[in-house]
Amino acid sequence: MAEAQLAVRDVHGWYGESHILHGMSFEVNAGEVVTLLGRNGAGKTTTMRAIMGMLANRKGSITYEGQELIRLKSDRIARHGIAYCPEERGIFSSLNVWENLMLPPVVKSGGLALDKIYQLFPNLEERSSSQGTKLSGGEQQMLAIARILRTGAKLLLLDEPTEGLAPVIVQQIGNTIRMLREQGFTMLLVEQNFHFAATVADRHYVVEHGRVIDMIPNSALAANREKLQTYLGV
């Protein structure tokens, strides 16, 4: 089998004194949509921050297209073609919608053109001169996803993109993720809502206490429903 596009191996991570990641290991292949499922505090967001270089204290190995990232600063990691959409969305209040959209620099060729992005999210064009944080929660989420599609990044890290959103918007984000998958984007998703995860992902990693404890292909999700419910405590 060819080498995975993203390989996370035995990663340990700390916030100050607290040891959050305890040997996190998993792989994401090119063009796959993979989720990290798990309870609150299991280390899913911390894993994303470790990949992105936003966790100061991290050890182990994270390779992207065969290149080691673990010692790079986050701006260098982004230049490899990895983009991050944080859980809190990170829309800047001192920037309008247009400036928020244009903020991330293009790091590789092959990003989505602006008209394509507006086709996906027409609201962003209508509200381009509004203050970023004046948008509704759903629009902010769309803006947070839209701005990393421009950059040419091929691996998208999406942290809880559906959290707190109305069902119709969740559906729209689901459609977007499926469309991006068809276009060849690779996505790593953190999700609490595994009903949503089941509609978009190829595989699921179950995270507990800062490590992966199980991997379930999406096709086997139904058969593993009971096991998953014990894992997630739902």
Partner: peptide, 9 residues
């Protein structure tokens, strides 16, 4: 932190 994660030094 987020601006840096977008690729800006």
């Amino acid at each position: 932190d987020l601006v840096q994660a977008f690729g800006i030094n």
